[in-house]
Design a protein around this nucleic acid. Structure first.
Lengths: 338, 338
DNA sequence: CTGAAAGCGCTTACAG
DNA sequence: CTGAAAGCGCTTACAG
């Protein structure tokens, strides 16, 4: 029952020209006499003609599809990044195909492959690609890839992200300078998540460099990024590691859980416990006390990632990488111990 | 330089069969002798063959693409809904094409059209379609459409959403029962946004029904949904309409702004001012005081919307609509006046 | 059970 | 400046 859409032939017949001329009127207008061109375009419009994208893709071997493969949309920083990414892409006549795959990059081979098989000419990924099979696949198919959120010098893929390791070093240094000695980390699941891994590594190594390695305490969530885990950790810390004076949360979500539960338990922040988050979500500055956290330019990341992919596809420009700034935004949830 | 992808002909040649047999081995396996089929599939795999989606789409007149056209991804409820939507869609062998268009549905004709012209077989939209040209276009092309977040009985398009009017009536009734008489509304931009319009209408009419129409006070944001607007409104209210005892915010975002600024200004909530939000974002229950707000099943909405579209496409089932529940979640930000 | 051939809707050398 | 024709990679009646 589907209404047959007008084809190039319909337009040609109605205009009394060949299909070649119709095609040219749209794709190479200067090669068609003006009055013919105008007539064709007018008739095309009146018939509601638009070129069949599948036919075009087949003929030109170009789908104009780019894929965004991300952990989830149910987390503000990814949603925001894709929001920006998508705007640039759509404005460029490309289309964004969206796929969520969770946080473990070890198991994305099939999903990314499927997205390429569905015609994606390029793909945005969050984090690093571990799987050698996937790396080989993408290189062999010559698919431009941009990895976001992390930054690495990688010969094969462009990274547009920030230095997760360095910023976490900064946090530990900041806390150490403040006088904190018992500092714990609340981490997200680190399996297949290089951002978490980098932060954990930074925590360990920087603590060590300050001679604080006798109090390495890492709580790694098993259930993703949930507020509850922050609350859980706070209970554990107060009962089992009460000497702890600072909590580095690798997500604002965890920090919100800690702060909320601290209030319930009557633990003053930052007097008794310093809390640090990560991501600088909008709400971070609105809660009480406002949250000290890490801010990174999420929208910029999305836009640059889009440009990177478009550039690679357009003039065969080598896909470029970019290290963006992240910074520790100090607010009232952090302070000197005691 | 692009690696030529294996075609059905490559597989056929390598297997010593015809392309028809290769195609059948995948699409109608029972019609191919087992050993032949196995050989073909094995060879296809070794060549990394996957069918060209453009060729398939052209031949079958079926793109397997569905579009999500939403205001923005930079707002949790939309991002979450699309997260769920996308999961169901992708699991069904379809692909999600994403496009953001802002909050004003008066101007989405071109964007939705473009998405259909890019091959979308069905489309998810947020809210109601005003534009008659767009309605005609979608009907004429016979494109299944599901409108979300709102609920209406519409002969042309399925709605999977909730009753924005009714829930706002509930809020006003709740406040009136508590003894509030001076109630104001903080609204998002209502132009082209039927959810806001419904809530504003509900506010006006219910206030009237309680004989409170002498204090109709609506603050409509011009700049989208920003925390700042909540703070601004609070200033205006305290200076110009200090008799106000309750603020109905049509977004948690506004409510967060109000709550945060109330704290700064030393205005006790709910003793001096009751604050109500909308959307029940995760953070709503974590702030102080926890926010009374409207909760709706966002993920369910996304899933059902996906099912609706898939159903319409699969067996030509009429697209179904669904009125989902929303409810007022009462927390400590609301109470009796004074 | 298998293959030869047509055709989906486009674009683009090629010829005029 | 324009048209006839080939061909992109598939699937599917049709014939055997």
């Amino acid at each position: 029952m589907k209404k047959i859409r007008a084809t190039v032939l319909d337009v040609a017949n109605a205009a009394g020209v060949s299909v070649a001329t119709v095609s040219r009127a749209f794709n190479k207008p200067e090669a068609v006499k003006e009055d013919v061109r105008n007539k064709v375009i007018e008739i095309a419009r009146s018939l509601g003609y638009s070129p069949n994208p599948a036919a075009k893709a087949l003929r030109l071997n170009k789908t104009n599809i780019l894929a965004a493969v991300i952990p989830t949309l149910d987390y503000a920083i990814y949603a925001q990044m894709i929001n920006s990414f998508q705007q640039v892409i759509n404005d460029s006549g490309y289309t964004v195909l969206l796929l969520t795959v969770g946080f473990d990059n070890n198991n994305i081979y099939e999903r990314v492959k499927s997205v390429v098989e569905r015609g994606a000419e390029g793909v945005l990924i969050v984090g690093k690609i571990y799987d050698q099979k996937l790396r080989d696949f993408l290189k062999e198919k010559n698919i431009p890839v941009v990895c976001t959120y992390s930054y690495e010098e990688d010969p094969d893929f462009a990274f547009i992200g920030y230095d997760n390791y360095a910023i976490t070093c900064n946090i530990v240094n900041y806390l150490s300078d403040l006088g904190h000695k018992r500092i714990a980390m609340v981490a997200g699941p680190s399996k297949g998540n290089d951002r978490q891994q980098a932060r954990i590594r930074a925590y360990k190594e920087t603590m060590e460099s300050h001679g604080l390695a006798d109090h390495l305490l890492i709580f790694e969530s098993t259930g993703g990024f949930a507020v509850n885990f922050g609350a859980e950790v706070l209970h554990k810390v107060t009962s089992e590691y009460p000497e702890t004076t600072a909590l580095i949360c690798n997500s604002d979500i965890f920090a919100f859980g800690v702060l909320s539960e601290a209030k319930n338990m009557g633990i003053p922040v930052p007097e008794r416990l310093t809390v640090i988050g990560h991501d600088d979500m909008e709400i971070a500055r609105l809660i009480q006390p406002p949250l000290t956290t890490v801010s990174m330019p999420v929208n910029e990341m999305g836009k640059q990632a889009a440009q990177s992919l478009l550039g690679a596809l357009a003039d065969g420009n080598p896909v470029f990488g970019l290290k963006l700034d992240s910074k520790l935004v100090v607010r009232e949830s952090s302070g000197k111990p005691q």
